[in-house]
């Protein structure tokens, strides 16, 4: 059909030139250059901050002779609070600023059409975009999570907050990257469906906050199998349970029957004693998660979130292949 003379020489010349960064990779990195640099800057800054705080803390503890002696109070200042807040909000920030506009911006500005009328299919383009987005989120969060775990883990007994609280559990180990990936994937999906950047960012923010509430209220505390410890009614909880997370507390009789904690809360001590006597209550029973379960629970949680990420990603690719973005 077309009889245009082909400029074979120029084409071959280009093919032989080594290109480390070409095709869609170049395009995606160029388009998201500022965002990539911003994420990089945030990660570097936060990393240095964590290292600095850890350094401050170890110096303070060393000076105080910890752990042989009591740690001074307060052991950490406001900075630690800000750091946990920053890490806690990082997944939402990434979802809103990386996820939501990822496709929506190209839909809104028409550049999705520009790219997909070159010689690349929508699916390849989306794969490149998602690849950049997920890699950036994963790498950034993995670094910060590793550093914060390195900060928190050895000093957890002197730092405020139990390990099953969101600010620790969701910001250490595999949880920070997994949560950020899931929320970002949700942001991408919301953006793809809404096709408007601002609307997508607002909706992603609302979704992320809602998802974290649901996660904290309904899911986080069900990720493991609770254990039980029984100790005498007039005794103290053994010291090795200090960093356990207490789920519930009962009283029990010698034959193992459990009663609610307040079953014998009577008006007078006499009545209480009579009640305890009558029911044969001899033990305190505590339902708890041991700190040794933390890693397993974090991986279980991360698994759920990664599965959710995979589902959302599959949906995005399927949606885009059956209709134009």
């Amino acid at each position: 059909m077309s009889t245009i003379p082909t400029l074979t020489d120029t084409r071959e010349g280009r093919a032989t030139r080594p290109r480390f960064l070409g095709g869609l990779t170049w395009l995606v990195l160029r388009q998201h250059r500022i965002t990539t640099l911003a994420v990089l800057a945030l990660v570097v800054f936060t990393s240095l901050w964590i290292v600095y705080q850890r350094n401050e803390l170890t110096q303070l503890l060393d000076a105080a002779g910890w752990p042989a002696k009591e740690a001074p109070i307060p052991v950490v200042g406001r900075q630690y609070e800000y750091l946990t807040m920053l890490l806690g909000s990082l997944p939402v920030v990434l979802a809103v600023f990386l996820g939501a506009p990822l496709i929506a911006a190209d839909q809104e500005q028409g550049t999705a059409q520009l790219v997909t009328t070159q010689s690349v299919t929508r699916r390849r383009w989306l794969t490149a975009k998602l690849g950049w987005c997920f890699l950036t989120v994963l790498a950034g969060c993995a670094v910060l999570s590793a550093l914060f775990t390195w900060f928190w883990q050895p000093h957890r007994s002197v730092l405020a907050g139990n390990w099953l609280e969101g600010e620790i559990f969701d910001s250490t180990g595999p949880m920070l990257p997994a949560l950020a990936l899931f929320l970002t994937a949700a942001g991408v999906t919301i953006g793809l469906l809404l096709r408007r950047v601002l609307a997508a960012m607002v909706a992603t923010f609302v979704f992320s906050v809602g998802a974290q509430v649901v996660w904290g209220e309904l899911i986080r505390r069900k990720l493991g199998t609770p254990r039980f410890v029984t100790y005498p009614l007039d005794g103290d909880l053994p010291a090795r349970f200090q960093d356990a997370y207490e789920l519930d507390r009962w009283v029990g009789s010698a034959d193992g029957t459990l009663y609610g904690w307040g079953v014998c809360a009577e008006a007078t001590e006499k009545a209480t004693d009579a009640c305890i006597e009558e029911k044969g209550i001899v033990d305190n029973v505590v339902e708890y998660y041991a700190h040794s379960q933390m890693a397993g629970m974090q991986w279980a949680g991360a698994g759920i979130l990664i599965a959710g990420t995979a589902l959302l990603t599959g949906f995005v690719l399927w949606w885009a292949s059956r209709r134009p973005v």
Partner: peptide, 9 residues
């Protein structure tokens, strides 16, 4: 360059 990167010919 976008054109060059995304089009074979």
């Amino acid at each position: 360059r976008l054109g060059r990167e995304l089009n074979p010919g």
